[in-house]
């Protein structure tokens, strides 16, 4: 009965939001190539936040999908984009530009943080990151925080050099850690299982999933490195929004999980469980990433 009444309120809320389509919008954005999938997940949260912010002139919410950093930066710059839901890597990219700042950490059900792992064949002679020099390592893709962003960062922070290979058949640089994108965690584990690479990088979340790394593969693998835990996702807000609104919004969002309707909206919003304040540790991790990025060449998203 409770759920039905909430559902009714949601429908009424959504209906009301349509009527204010031309009114000032509170826009939540996300990087994706599939707006058809993302918009239905983000739109309710956008409407809800707009509702919360009516006192500040917002009348409706809007989900906006971006396929590159530049368009997002432009939207932040012209004030049309109010908030972005991003991975830690994406957040580092956007915050580095100064157009936005962290607002809250978005925690997912069962996984609020995760770590990156580097896995090798258990019979190999690789036991540390240093042992990877002259070896080959497979990363998922360049957008993946855990499978691309964190591990090379750690390798470089160790003082080692990474070098991208065009093909696995290409000769490896004996003085660098040689990497290649595989597109998916499954591809990486299969390559390691077939001993076509010397190591792979993946998140502890994927390591625990049997459909990503089957048990018979795990029995042959060995973990040589685990990163620190870091937030799975982070919400950033347009730096142009006044501070009181930021405070009001942060307060509303961090308390959202305390009632059923808020939890319902959180679940719709990328199966999230709650929003929490950005801890000092997370802030430090973010700053570390930003610094690392500043040393890196522009990525394809740029």
């Amino acid at each position: 009965m409770f759920l039905l009444s909430r559902a009714f309120l949601l429908i009424a809320f959504l209906a009301a939001s349509f009527t204010r389509a031309e009114a000032p919008l509170f826009e939540i954005g996300k990087f994706s190539l599939n707006p058809a999938k993302q918009i239905p997940q983000i739109q309710p949260m956008a409407d809800h936040v707009a509702g919360l912010m009516t006192n500040y002139g917002y009348e409706s919410g809007k989900a906006r999908i971006y396929n590159n950093f530049d368009s997002a930066r432009a939207a932040l710059a012209d004030g049309s984009l109010d908030m972005l839901t991003l991975s830690l890597y994406e957040a580092a990219q956007m915050i580095r530009d100064g157009e936005s700042e962290p607002l809250v950490i978005k925690r997912k059900n069962g996984l609020s943080e995760y770590s990156s792992l580097i896995v090798v064949d258990k019979d190999s002679d690789i036991y540390s990151l240093e042992d990877l020099v002259g070896k080959t390592i497979a990363f998922e893709d360049y957008g993946s925080t855990s499978a691309y962003f964190v591990p090379p960062m750690a390798i470089q922070q160790t003082g080692l050099t990474v070098a991208q290979m065009d093909q696995f058949q290409s000769a490896a640089d004996p003085n660098a850690v040689n990497f290649r994108y595989t597109g998916a965690e499954q591809n990486s584990s299969v390559l390691l299982f077939q001993e076509k690479v010397d190591a792979i990088a993946l998140s502890d979340f994927d390591w625990l999933k049997a459909d990503h790394v089957p048990i018979e593969q795990k029995e042959k693998f060995r973990i040589i490195w685990v990163s620190d835990a870091y937030p799975a996702a982070i919400e950033v807000i347009n730096s142009q929004i006044p501070s009181d609104q930021k405070v009001f919004l942060r307060d509303q969002l961090t308390h959202m999980h305390l009632d059923a309707f808020g939890r319902f909206l959180l679940d719709e919003y990328h199966e999230s469980s709650r929003f929490s304040l950005v801890t000092a540790e997370a802030a430090n991790q973010l700053q570390g990433l930003i610094k690392y990025l500043e040393k890196q060449p522009p990525s394809n998203l740029d």
Binding site: L33, N34, P35, A36, I65, N67
Partner: peptide, 10 residues
């Protein structure tokens, strides 16, 4: 229509 949603969005 479903196929054109994303290209049309962008």
């Amino acid at each position: 229509a479903e196929s054109l949603a994303n290209p049309l969005y962008f």
